[in-house]
Simulated assay, not measured.
Amino acid sequence: MTLDDIDGLIRIETSPRERATPIIMQMMRSVYPHDEVFGDYCTVNSYVDCPPGELFDYLADTRCLQEWTYSLRGFTPTEEPGLWLAYDRLGSETKIFTRTVANRQAGTVDYHCAWDQGTHLWMIYLMRIVDAQVVLDRPGSVVLWTNCHHPFYDRNPYPQTAPPQRPVWVGDFWDMFGAGHLLELRNLKAIAEYRHRQGLSVTPSWMR
């Protein structure tokens, strides 16, 4: 089997530039449907004027979510090492459980979360901190943040753990994730840049 046996590939060997250019132009639009951009994946990005190592240290501590997210508050450790309990005020008195998986060498910080229960952390927030000097030729960081539309966003897999009379489910907000996450990323940028400009540690003393 060779690449020639695979349908749908567009490579210069089989599609010269003159043939590929109209295809690419057709893919480019001035307006994109919201569901096409944010249906299966929600990705937001930003430049942050703060050293990547300092930003990584801050984001790798789960408690930072209490500062820059819109609605996660009151982080306390659970009996399970590395697992934190907080409240997502989008869901009134909704418990949210979070475990942070970070890799300094790769610059990745992933938040594994779930509403109501801490056994199956299916809400995964994937973040990467990139050295802006490498990709933008300027000091600072580039933050890449992606969520995937897990099927549980469409239906609560653990209804028995939900608080009574809660009117919403986290998936009800999926269409707003793009704007909501951009709002939160702007919060992160404002906090990190302010502390860096003031000569302060990006990670506050209460977290150290």
Rank of each mutant, 00 (worst) to 15 (best):
P164M: 12
M27Y: 02
D172H: 15
V101H: 05
Q117W: 02
G107H: 02
N156W: 11
V142G: 03
G74W: 06
A192V: 07
T78I: 09
G74P: 02
G171T: 15
Y32K: 02
E184L: 10
D4R: 14
Y32M: 05
D110A: 02
G39P: 00
F38G: 01
T100K: 00
R155N: 12
T69M: 14
C42M: 06
R104C: 03
V109H: 03
T108F: 04
W122H: 14
R166Q: 14
L85H: 06
Y87M: 12
P52E: 08
E67Y: 10
L200N: 04
S141Q: 13
R195P: 01
I96P: 00
S15E: 11
Y58Q: 07
Y125D: 15
Y70P: 01
W174Q: 10
A86Q: 05
E13T: 13
D88W: 03
T21S: 13
T146M: 13
I12D: 07
R197G: 07
D175I: 06
L200C: 03
A190F: 08
E93H: 04
A190H: 06
W68S: 13
E18Y: 00
Q198N: 09
T43C: 03
C148D: 05
P77N: 04
M28E: 04
H112T: 02
A60H: 00
R186G: 13
N156T: 14
S30Q: 10
R128P: 12
E193I: 12
L90G: 09
L90R: 12
D131I: 07
P22A: 14
V48R: 00
V48Y: 03
I96G: 01
W206V: 13
C113K: 04
V143M: 04
H34V: 07
I129M: 15
T119P: 00
T76Y: 02
R89E: 15
L188Q: 04
R128Y: 05
T69H: 12
T69D: 09
V31F: 09
N45R: 05
W68T: 04
T62F: 00
D35L: 06
P157C: 06
G199L: 06
Q105M: 06
R155G: 06
E18V: 04
I124F: 08
A162P: 11
D131R: 11
A179W: 09
T76Q: 09
C148S: 08
A20W: 01
V142H: 05
T14Q: 12
L144R: 12
Y153K: 10
G53C: 02
D7H: 13
P139Y: 12
R17E: 07
Y41S: 01
D131W: 08
L200G: 04
P204C: 11
C64K: 08
W84D: 06
E80M: 10
H181G: 09
I23Q: 11
E18Q: 13
D172P: 06
S92V: 07
R11N: 07
S30I: 04
R195K: 12
R29M: 13
G82E: 05
Q133T: 15
L183N: 13
I10P: 00
V202F: 00
N156L: 15
M127R: 02
